[in-house]
Amino acid sequence: MLTFIITAVAVFALYLLLTAGSAIPGSTVFLWSREEILAGIILSIVAGLIGRNVLFREKNYRMLNPKRWFLFIVYLVGPFFFAMAKANFDVAYRVLTGKINPGIVKISPKLSTDLGITLLADSITLTPGTLSVDVNEETNDLYVHWINVKKPVKIENVCGSFPEWARRIAE
């Protein structure tokens, strides 16, 4: 029941975001027309019924904490965006000169949840010189394609402080 309510509210918020500014003179609730709101309520109830087992498969409600979302936004505009800009200049250098030294390395970030490992893998893909290729689902080890391998392989060289951030946001 709780998962149904959360899913329906999230879908309804997305619907309101996408139909903002549809107000017609004569039948209006703040920014939306009355018909849009009615259609949104019906559609979000249907979507909540269908998708109630998707968002909270593990019956774990820790992502409802607003502090985690705040940390996520800080992470996106701060260290993540900086690393992404650096990654692009790195790729620009390698495109123009053609100097590569690639290899696939294995790192164990010691994260336990699916969401944490997803966040880390996506961050790794967009940051300097690395691309996540595969994951071992039992031990949560990531296999990372690294465009400029430096031996010995250390986790700090591959993904910096991202496992710390992923742990703080998602676990």
Partner: peptide
Amino acid sequence: PKQAVMDEL
């Protein structure tokens, strides 16, 4: 991967 120095996977 071509020109790979290592492939742990």
